[in-house]
Amino acid sequence: MSVIVDYYNYWIVVFLMMAGFYVVISANNLVKKVVGLNIFQTSVFMLYISMGKVSGGTAPIIIEGVTQYSNPLPHVLILTAIVVGVATTAVGLSLVIRIKHAYGTVEENEFQNEDDAI
């Protein structure tokens, strides 16, 4: 029982990661792949933030009389990672738009077939 209480958070986060991973490798459409990648990414953020949690602690903003704070370091790393994540997602999506212009499709097997035909 204590194993479940100790690790349930990590397990569900691993499940979410794998759901994102499955979308990335199984989806044919590039936009859906990007969505899957984003789900994977958000789950990784959640793993980091879970590690920084201290039960009974509060948010790391100093208040008089509170001694137990959650770990601020993962928060800093993930905060910047989220903004960088959206910037890289935008680069990925603009590559998808370019592929659409070049091939007329964003389905992976279709433009691979076109590549093979050349």
């Binding site: 958000t42 959640m46 949690k53 959650s70 993962p74 903004v83």
Partner: peptide, 18 residues
């Protein structure tokens, strides 16, 4: 979930950006 895990700054960013 980030708010529940005490990461208020992160939750703020995720809601605005993600």
């Amino acid at each position: 979930i980030f708010i529940n895990l005490d990461a208020v700054d992160v939750a703020f960013t995720e809601a605005a950006v993600g």
